[in-house]
Design a protein around this nucleic acid. Sequence first.
RNA 1: GGUCCUGUGGCCGAGUGGCUAGGCUGAGCUCUGCAAAAGCUCCUACAGCGGUUCGAAUCCGCUCGGGACCUCCA
Length: 487
Amino acid sequence: MQTLSIYNTLSRNKELFKPLKAPHVGMYVCGPTVYSDVHLGNCRTFISFDIIYRYLTHVGYKVRYVRNITDAGHLESDADTGEDKVSKKAKLQQLEPMEIVQKYTVDFHNVLQQFNCLPPSIEPTATGHIIEQQEMAKTIIENGWAYEVDGTIYFDVEKFAKQNNYTALTGRKIDELFENTRDLDGQDEKRGRLDFALWIKAKPEHLMQWPSKWGQGFPGWHIECSAMSTKYLGEQFDIHGGGMDLAPTHHTNEIAQNIAYCGKQPCNYWMHTNMLTVSGQKMSKSLGNSFLPHELFSGNHPLLQKGYSPMAVRFFMLQTHYRSTLDFSNEALQAAEKGFERLVEAYKTLQQLIAQNSSPENIAELEKQCYNAMNDDFNTSVLIAHLFDAARIINSANDKKTTLTTTDIELLKKIFNHFFFDVLGLKIETEKNRSSEALTKVMDYVLEMRKKAKEEKNFALSDNIRDSLINAGIQIKDGKEGTNWKI
RNA sequence: GGUCCUGUGGCCGAGUGGCUAGGCUGAGCUCUGCAAAAGCUCCUACAGCGGUUCGAAUCCGCUCGGGACCUCCA
């Protein structure tokens, strides 16, 4: 097993990864609230955790990866005010709330599939775990950490913070939090200003509500994750992840709930992915600089000069470490697209490399460096740099400027299979008709014609053939071993 | 306003107290009938000002800029 270190938000340091029950690893990631098209920032988070899931699996762990779908209880404001996001959308579109949930869940799955993300082991929903959430709230009340006011259950943060480190995740000073939170004038039935709801009394017109011992209501936003992680991963598990914006409120409250419920920290390693910006500014609807995944793929957006394939985008994201902000720009995307293509071409070249008896290259060391990169807090950026080194060696060997033994070539293939495909989750996109048999035969014939023309010094014709192929979107490359082509 | 994070070459983006990140772009060379591709070389940076140190982009302080969350506002 590899020695892996992970940056833990709790300690603000990289720590050696020690699972509670190796080889089993429990990982929980906060999934999307399915009330609108999936945000590209969400995609980044889920792609990051897809890599983590893939790498842990690759090095031999048996990972149970749980990622929830929030389909109820997430209000417009995190201060337990405003409407439920799903219900609001349902009213606007005059649909059943579960129609909204279905529509955007399907959309979410489609997008992640295009990005080649593996499905999680379990994908539980908030509405599917109402009982569990009620039970957890009940226990928290019994344990003395929550109270009921007219059918709504609040978590007593002030009381909790006196005996526990409520702000462990962010290191904020609790006194300042109290000071900076304003009074919710008049309507406030909470005891403390930082208190948050575990269960909320539903008004009669509220579309999504369930019976409970406290009357009709619906769950608070934070309780679902505590309830579902506990149900499927136990009271304590290994990794909990999500976007950085979730740490101060959602995750902080989640930890409080778990401790209030069973007296234990829910997990050992908290991992947070950084945000997305567009040309240096944060991606937001109000700034008019946000676009959807399908707009990014098609290029159908004023900010996009062209479309970028899902794999190019995935590769682009992986060139930046998950804890750094990721900046979208046409220039950067195009650079990534070309770099990705370069690796794909090197992989194809690798398949037809001819082995020599000896080699000056140290491929075993290269493989080791790839593992080192991933072991250092999943540093995909450094891993990719090593893959480019591999590409240079492959191309050099193809140009007869270096030599590789059979062992070297096999090891290079293994490196690509393990890291490029399995761990980074990249794939070679097969354009329709790209390598249909008929086209291959036609190309063989056309290239034979061109070869003959060249032998007869009829360069006008050979160039004409080449230009015509370029017009048809096919590029040819003359090499020592003959001519290759690609679309 | 508060807390936290962050500032790297034309662009993107890793990184460690002293040793080439890598990709894209541009220039030159090799190869080639020419081109493309590929290889090699070059453009060699670390926001600014102080400090610690034999030595800092890497540690500390301040200034300026960017971001996240909270507050405010809409």
